[in-house]
Structures are given as structure tokens and as C-alpha cells.
Write a protein that binds this DNA or RNA. Structure first.
Length: 838
DNA sequence: AGCACGCCGACT
DNA sequence: GTCGGCGTGCTC
């Protein structure tokens, strides 16, 4: 890495003009050089944000990546408009990381910046229109222009949107443009800082009433105004000033007096007017209301102690340790122990979790131990909340952050430990937009930069991580005992083929599963049903002519949603009503085919009308707290049967569930993709982990399958990760897949199938010439070959880990991609480059 | 990515 | 004859 890139002090001669190379949030693969105005030259620092004009009329936020005094040749550098931060908002190590990411994932540093900064830190400008006070009406205005001008005259400054709302004219932008030309109005850019600290309005007694005597007098005087008296009494009940006058400074939130049905707020107003109370505003943290009772003791079991000791031993000579611990082995306690130690040694700690696991018990758990020293970074939090975490880390308020994928972008300066829990989770990989990064892999790189250590934790590690743990790269620590001697669940395989033959199936339910569920309901025990497909049915079909409802924009069937009474495309979001008769032949025999979570839920109502059934999938958890609510209800045993997609495999307390039912295991196992076995093993194992024990008996996991003799199911049942790994790794090596190779997927898109195909073929040919046949797969259309009216073709590149210079190969690939994009005979082609695709 | 500039069809 | 369609190319 270029050392000047991270230099942050400037011993410049006073006269020299200072230039800054800036990261701009645009997909242009270079930095942009701007001039620093003389008055700011001593104040600018690397990592500070500035506002610059970019292009003719755009005003955007940029980050200073480098400061120097060599004027650019060939063009005149513009001045920066404003300096936003006196101290760096982005740390030098982050700029280094951004650069590494843009090189590794083949995207621009601006794209990295764009996803890294919460939008509250990115200032955007808005064009504002203002009446020109010097306008002399020396120009001929059309009637429309006159109406508009009169309206603009009435206001200080208006945005285009506001004008649009004010007048009923069409083509407002054109009219404004004309008015600008005639010098009747002025355009200017208004910059708005998005982040607003959260303030609460508070009241407190004025100094005159802070003391006992004055208070008693006040209460006496207010005997005729009972409402006002009540206000004072209420205040004192919260803030006992009579016992301790100093408490008054803190004040009380105004909202306490504005509760429904009481109408104390008007009395409060009077008291404020009479200078009994005074108002003030108080800036509060948005995280204040989370449970917070720090320093709960953590007692490690013998196996947990052993695991954390082993991890620390590995850290002597290794940066990364894979903690392979089965569900319920108590990895969290081990994490807590390690986090505590890292914090005690004075370093920062980052704990990554997949999105869906974050809203649950583990956060509450960590909060109990670490209190408000711990920041939380989550996509369902508002932007302001994210900015608060960002700034809190810089200010030293948070030395420990629990967060999702994007938390790797936070401004750490001195990381000592990164924990990636559920490291096998595919949601750590961002697919769209660029950078298409894998947070687990970035975490490892980041740890090297900070000289920090990494713990990757999982009950079902990714093949990649386990492979590295088999070599000298990573250390491996295993926990195979269930905490508190909870027994492993008992597996039952149900042959649905056989049951179908014997006519024992009730739609999707086997008789065995129904028997267990019924027994469970009778004994008030809980059941989880897993079907990794949302909606009611994945397609609807005409019984007469076999017509199937398709998305008009994508090459997929439409999924039928019962409750919403419509068909939806899960790729582009297209919706349409369900036809009563077949649009092709007019037959009324249009039937739903296949099943998703919604259908299972629906059928459960018929089979067990008395049972309390809840569904949990993307459709029922869209609201901010819906997910948490369902989990809470389930924990409080207000739900008997929970039906869900893979969402249910995380963060549920297994102790209360005695039956887990898994549908459609075959579809997962035989999915046409090289990772299918690994994924299926992980998913089924994770879901099975939800089965606990009740009254000393182990829980039951029932798997419905067409073929109970598949070896993958046997590995799951025997909890034999190792067998799965050994079998799978041989195949990976044989066919040249990760971890033996690195994959780069190029997705070519065009509105016409033919152009898309031609471009993909040309691209593949260029790559083939240099890299050879064995390293290039395709081009071939993906499973869904048309999405949002774009035809897709994929080229997959396999690069061996050892033999190939990965960086050079990527540069070459990038060149070839650019060749295609600039090919005049292939216009409007888009190419997505996905490094380490999943 | 935006955004402006530039060259061809349906309207006052 | 103009508005405005979106193709093309640039941004320090």
C-alpha cells in the first residue's frame, strides 16, 4: 500500500497551494483532484468530508484520500466548496480498506464509499429557485411564466418539488429554465445535512422554586388551580427536588404531561408562562431505551473454558480461528469471554451477525453483559441511529459494536478482535449493488490491517473456512457437547413416496408428521415447520391446457399469494390478480401447484382448527418489529405451530420445541448448483437445531423425503459434518470449485436475447484465448434467464488458488469486460462482475 | 451514476 | 417550425 496514501499530517510550506485527491461517490475508477482554498489549507485532514461541485450542477460529499502540493496537469482543479469535518470522519485504515475492496471486488472506490457511509453522512444538494430581486421586467414573459414567477416571488426559496405542488402547470423544469435564461429567477444549490441529533423537550423548575420553602408556598398558592398543582406534584414524583435540589437540573420530559386523556399540558404551559417551569432541549442517544444492566457474570462450563483456551493458544501464531460448535454448545459464552478480554486490553471489538439473527436474544444477552458500551448497527435502524454509532466509535463511546454485514465499514482505529458468527451464512455476501463483497472475507483482511484476531463461528462451517482450518492458515476449535447436557434431537425420516402409494398423505402432510403434531398439541408442546419457500404456491396451472401464469418481465412463473389474493413475481415484484378462468382456453379449472409457507399455514387451520398457527417469512416480517414480535409470542407459548422459511433457523430458543418438521428436503439437496449439498446440510442441520428437549426427552426432527436413503440425510442425522466435508471436498477438487479455485461470475445483460448472447460469447472467447478452456464455463443462460426484461447470460471463471496471479488475472478480465462494453456493435450491454460469487 | 449536449419524430 | 425523445460522453 502506498504509504503517502495514509499520511495524515501536512508539513507544507505556507505558500504552496494544497490539493486534495478525493473519493467521490460515483462509479468512476479514479480519484478527483480539487484545490484547497488558502484559508482552509491548514485545517484539512485526510478522512475529512468536503463538499465539492462535480460536473456542471452537481454538489456532492467527498472524502479526502490524499493531500499534496503537485498541481494536476492538463486541467484546472476546482476549489472545494466547504470543509465538513475538522477531524477525520473516515479513518486512514478505512481508506486503505476501501481501496483494497475496490481492487479486490473490481469496483470503484466511490462505490465502496457509497455503501460504507450511512446516508446521513452523505450530504446531497437540492436545487432551489429564488426570485431575482434585480429583475427589471425587461423581458417578455409568457403567461405561464408570469404565473410561475408570481408564485416564486411569494417565497424565499423553493425546490422543484415544492413548485410542482404549488402550481398546476406542466413542464415546470422547462419554465424555470426559461425564467433563468431571462434572469427573472436565480438557481442555487442548497446543501442539507441529513443527520439530526435526537432531542427531547424537557422542563424543570426555575431557580426560584428549587428550594423546599418556595415549593411549599407554590403548592399552597396553587390550591385553587388543582390541575396546575397536579403538574407540580407529578414533577416532584419523578424528580424529588424537595429531597435533593440538584436533581432539578436533569428536568423531566415534557411528554410525561402530554399523555392521552389527561390534558395536563395546557396547565404546564401556564406554569411555564408564569415562570414556575422553564423549557429546555436535551440531546439524547437513540439507544437509551434498550435494556441495560451491565456486568452480568459469565461462568464458563468446562468445555467452554477449554474452547476459549484453545482459541487463545491458536492466536499465538494464527490470525484466524474457526470455532466449530454444534447448536447449543454455548458459543456465545465463549465469545463473551473473548470480547471481555479484548476490551480489557484496550482494543475495539466487532461482532458480526447475519441480519435475521441480530434482532434476537443474542443482542439482549450481550447488552446485559456489556451495557451501553456496546453499539448496535442494523439495517432496520434509522439512518440517524447509524450515524450515532459511527460518531460514537470515533468519540470512544462505543468500543464494541454488534452489527450486520455493513458494520465492517465502521471507523475503527484499533480493532483487537472480530467475531463472525454463523460465518457460513450467505447473507454476508452483498450481491447488489457493487461492491459485491463478502463481509467475512473482508473481516479477515481488515484484521490483518489492524493486527487483530478473528473468530469465525458456526455449527455448520462453510467448506471454505473448514478447508483453511484443515491447513495451517486457520486454527480449528471444536465444541461437540450440547450445553447443560441437552440431548441431541432424534431424527425420523418419512418416505413420502411410500405414504403417497399407501394414500396416507394429506396434501403435503405425511401421516407420521400429523400424528406427532397432534400428540404435541394435546400435550401443549410447540412445533416448528420448515418450508423454504414463501407464498401459497409457486405457480398456478390450468388443468385443461397446462397453461401456467408467467411474469411478463421475467422468465419465471408467478407465485400465488392467498391472503393478498394476487400473483407475484419474486424476482421483479410484478403483481397481478388471479384469473378466474384460464386466459388461454377459458377453462375454470385453474389450480395451484406446489406449496409454500402460506399453503401450509392455510391447511393447518383446516387440520387443527384449534391450534394457534403463525407464519414467519419475508411477507409476515416486513414491519420493523414484526420479527421480534413473532419470536416473543413463540417464546411466551402463545403460538403452537410456527411455519416458516429459513428465517426460523436463527435465534429461536430450542428448549421449548419438541417437534420440527421439514418439508421438501429433496428440493434443497438437488438444487442445480455446486453448493447444493453444503447448503442443504447447513440448512437442515440449522433447522434441526431448533428442536430441544422437553421434560427430559429429546426433541424430534421429522424430515419428509422421496428418498430416505440419501447419504446427505444420513450425515445430517448422525451430525457428521466431517463426512459431508470429506465427500464434498473431493468433488470440489475434482471439478475445480472453491476452495480450490476462486470464482468470478460475469453476468451479461441486454434487452434482446440475441445481443446478450453475442456479447457473452464474445466475452467468453476473449477470456478463453488467454485463460484456457478449463477455466471458463459458459456462456450459458442462468436458471432464470430473463429478469426485469433483461436477458442474462453468465460466464463463470475458475481461477486456481495456487497457480494463478489473481490480481493480474482480474486486471485482464476487467480489460476484456471494458472491451465488450465499448464495442460499437454491442450497444447497451451491461456486465456485472461478481468476484467470489456464491 | 447523474447530467448536459445533441440529433430526429408528433404537436402548437 | 418547436418540444422532447433518449443515445453518448464527461465529470477534477
Amino acid at each position: 500500500m502506498n504509504p503517502t496514501f495514509i499520511q495524515d499530517s501536512l508539513p507544507f510550506e505556507e505558500e504552496a497551494t494544497v490539493f486534495a485527491d478525493l473519493i467521490l461517490p460515483v462509479p468512476v475508477p479514479r480519484l478527483f483532484t480539487y484545490r484547497i482554498p488558502r484559508v482552509l489549507s491548514g485545517l484539512v485532514k485526510i478522512g475529512a468530508r468536503v463538499i465539492v461541485q462535480f460536473g456542471k450542477n452537481r454538489v456532492i460529499t467527498a472524502i479526502i484520500a490524499k493531500l499534496h502540493t503537485s498541481p494536476p496537469s492538463g486541467y484546472q482543479a476546482k476549489y472545494i466548496m466547504e470543509l465538513l469535518d475538522e477531524e477525520p470522519l473516515v479513518m486512514p485504515s478505512q481508506i486503505e480498506l476501501f481501496r483494497w475492496m475496490s481492487e479486490y471486488y473490481l469496483c470503484t472506490i466511490g462505490e465502496v464509499m457509497n455503501v460504507a457511509l450511512p446516508s446521513g453522512l452523505k450530504i446531497t444538494s437540492q436545487s432551489k429557485v429564488q426570485y431575482n430581486p434585480d429583475f427589471a421586467y425587461d423581458q417578455l414573459l409568457t403567461e405561464q411564466e408570469n404565473i410561475l414567477l408570481e408564485e416564486i416571488k411569494k417565497h424565499q426559496a423553493l425546490s422543484y418539488d415544492e413548485i410542482g405542488r404549488l402550481v398546476e402547470q406542466a413542464n415546470v423544469p422547462a419554465l424555470i429554465k426559461s425564467l433563468v435564461g431571462k434572469r427573472a429567477v436565480i438557481l442555487f444549490e442548497q446543501v442539507k445535512e441529513r443527520y439530526k441529533p435526537k432531542v427531547v423537550r424537557k422542563v424543570r423548575l426555575t431557580a426560584a422554586y428549587e428550594h423546599d420553602e418556595a415549593l411549599l408556598n407554590l403548592l399552597k398558592n396553587l390550591e385553587k388551580q388543582p390541575k396546575q398543582q397536579e403538574v407540580v406534584m407529578r414533577y416532584l414524583s419523578y424528580i424529588p427536588v424537595q429531597n435533593n435540589p440538584a436533581l432539578n437540573q436533569k428536568g423531566l420530559e415534557k411528554s410525561v404531561f402530554a399523555q392521552e386523556g389527561e390534558r395536563l399540558d395546557s396547565s404546564l404551559k401556564t406554569l411555564i408562562k408564569n415562570q414556575v417551569f422553564e423549557q429546555f432541549e436535551f440531546t439524547v442517544s437513540r439507544f437509551a431505551d434498550l435494556p441495560n444492566s451491565p456486568a452480568a457474570e459469565v461462568n464458563l462450563s468446562v468445555s467452554q473454558q477449554k474452547a476459549s483456551r484453545q482459541i487463545q493458544d491458536h492466536f499465538q501464531d494464527k490470525e484466524v480461528v474457526l470455532l466449530h460448535g454444534i447448536t447449543g454448545s454455548g458459543k456465545t459464552e465463549v465469545y463473551i469471554h473473548l470480547i471481555k478480554q479484548a476490551l480489557e486490553s484496550g482494543t475495539q471489538v466487532l461482532f458480526l451477525l447475519p441480519e435475521i439473527a441480530l434482532t434476537t436474544q443474542i443482542v439482549v444477552r450481550l447488552r446485559k453483559v456489556f451495557g451501553d458500551e456496546m453499539g448496535i448497527y442494523h439495517s432496520k435502524f434509522s439512518d440517524n441511529e447509524r450515524v450515532e454509532v459511527w460518531k460514537g466509535i470515533i468519540e470512544g463511546k462505543f468500543r464494541f459494536v454488534v452489527g450486520v454485514r455493513s458494520a465492517i465499514f465502521l471507523p475503527f482505529t484499533d480493532l483487537g478482535l472480530i467475531i463472525v458468527d454463523e460465518e457460513h451464512e450467505t447473507s454476508y455476501k452483498q450481491y447488489d449493488p457493487a461492491p459485491r463483497y463478502h463481509a467475512r472475507d473482508v473481516a479477515v483482511v481488515m484484521a490483518y490491517m489492524h493486527h487483530a484476531k478473528v473468530v469465525l463461528g458456526s455449527a455448520t462451517p462453510s467448506l471454505e473456512s473448514y478447508f483453511h482450518a484443515q491447513s495451517v492458515r486457520y486454527g480449528l476449535v471444536e465444541m461437540f457437547e450440547r450445553y447443560g447436557a441437552a440431548a441431541l434431537p432424534e431424527f425420523i425420516l418419512i418416505d413420502t413416496k411410500l405414504e403417497k402409494k399407501q394414500r396416507k398423505m394429506k396434501n403435503e402432510f405425511s401421516s407420521v408428521l400429523l400424528d406427532y403434531m397432534e400428540h404435541n398439541l394435546k400435550h401443549s408442546e410447540q412445533t416448528i415447520l420448515f418450508q423454504n419457500r414463501r407464498g401459497y404456491s409457486p405457480y398456478i396451472q390450468c388443468d385443461e391446457c397446462s397453461w401456467i401464469a408467467h411474469c411478463p418481465n421475467c422468465d419465471v412463473s408467478l407465485t400465488y399469494h392467498l391472503k393478498a389474493a394476487e400473483m407475484r413475481c419474486h424476482y421483479c415484484g410484478h403483481k397481478e390478480p388471479v384469473p378466474r378462468t384460464c386466459p388461454n382456453c377459458g377453462s375454470p379449472k385453474v389450480k395451484t401447484m406446489g406449496f409454500g409457507t402460506e399453503k401450509i399455514e392455510d391447511e393447518l387451520h383446516l387440520i387443527f382448527p384449534e391450534a394457534r398457527v403463525q407464519r414467519m417469512d419475508m411477507d409476515t416480517t416486513r414491519a420493523k418489529n414484526a420479527y421480534q414480535q413473532i419470536i416473543q409470542d413463540f417464546e411466551n407459548e402463545q403460538i403452537d405451530i410456527l411455519v416458516g422459511t429459513q428465517m426460523i433457523s436463527k435465534g429461536l430458543d430450542f428448549d421449548k420445541v419438541s417437534v420440527v418438521g421439514i418439508f421438501d428436503a429433496d428440493r434443497m439437496i438437488h438444487f442445480p448448483e455446486f453448493r447444493a449439498s453444503e447448503r442443504a446440510f447447513q440448512m437442515i442441520t440449522q433447522v434441526s437445531g431448533r428442536a430441544g428437549r422437553r421434560a427430559g426427552k429429546p426433541g424430534k426432527v421429522l424430515i419428509q423425503t422421496h428418498n430416505p436413503h440419501q447419504e446427505l440425510l444420513r450425515w445430517v442425522i448422525e451430525n457428521d459434518y466431517r463426512r459431508m466435508y470429506d465427500t464434498e471436498i473431493v468433488e470440489r477438487e475434482q471439478y475445480g470449485y472453491p476452495p480450490f479455485t476462486r470464482l468470478i461470475k460475469l453476468i451479461v445483460k441486454h434487452a434482446e436475447r440475441d445481443v446478450s448472447q453475442r456479447a457473452a460469447q464474445a466475452l467468453a472467447q476473449k477470456l478463453l484465448d488467454e485463460l484456457g478452456q478449463s477455466r471458463i464455463l459458459g456462456p450459458e443462460p442462468p436458471l432464470v434467464e430473463r429478469v426485469r426484461n433483461q436477458f442474462l447470460f453468465e460466464v463463470l471463471i475458475k481461477l486456481e488458488r495456487e497457480k494463478i496471479n489473481f490480481k493480474a488475472a482480474k486486471t485482464f478480465i476487467q480489460e476484456k469486460v471494458t472491451d465488450i462494453l465499448t464495442d460499437k456493435t454491442l450497444k447497451n450491454v451491461q456486465i456485472v462482475v461478481d468476484v467470489d460469487c456464491m
